[in-house]
Amino acid sequence: MTKHDSRKIQQIHEELHSHLPPEPALRAKALESLLVEKGLVDPQAIETWIEVYSEEIGPKRGAKVVARAWRDPAFKALLLEDGTKAIAQFDFVGHGGGHLKVLENTDKLHNMVVCTLCSCYPISVLGVPPNWYKTAAYRARAIREPRAVLKEFGVELDGETEVRVWDSTSELRYLVLPQRPDGTDGWDEDRLAAIVTRNSMIGTERDLGPGKGNG
């Protein structure tokens, strides 16, 4: 049984702070070697996790979901009603996908997601979060001065647009559904998905268009 004792954890942290090797790469190597030697991790599982999140699970998944919502009104309705059920159609349910809520941008509304307390993020559709999402600066500022942060990302909002910032304080995870840009009529799902950026699904980018995106 784990003893859930805050004071003891704090004492251990102080010891670790004083004694861990100064370089993060050395700390990482020491921990990995120790856990492998003790049989607490299987090296093959380490490689597989890295591979899965470097290649398979990333923002291209979210882009597919957005592209389908742009083309298929019934799917969009389901996505807004029950995000987890909708992404199950793609087999995208996984870490951070168990309670997925989708927030739709409109002409007068811009949604933006933050986790002020840690780093909660819809990993199963966007992959691991970017470093900036986890920095103190973004976590502190996005909830208080979202317009200033958006400006740093190159997003200029007019006075007519309301900003909604969603702080991910529970196991619910939020994904922004960006607006479909003009000039994409008749595009198929793959072509649309290629212009959907990761940041547009976090809400730090707003106007998508041909020539932008992951593709």
Binding site: A28, L31, E32, D42, A45, I46, E47, I50, Y53
Partner: peptide
């Protein structure tokens, strides 16, 4: 996803632990 090899190693190690 990862900006250095050690970030990836920690990620993999922790997830596999």
């Amino acid at each position: 996803a990862f900006h250095s090899d050690w970030e990836a190693r920690i990620y993999g190690t922790v997830r596999a632990m």
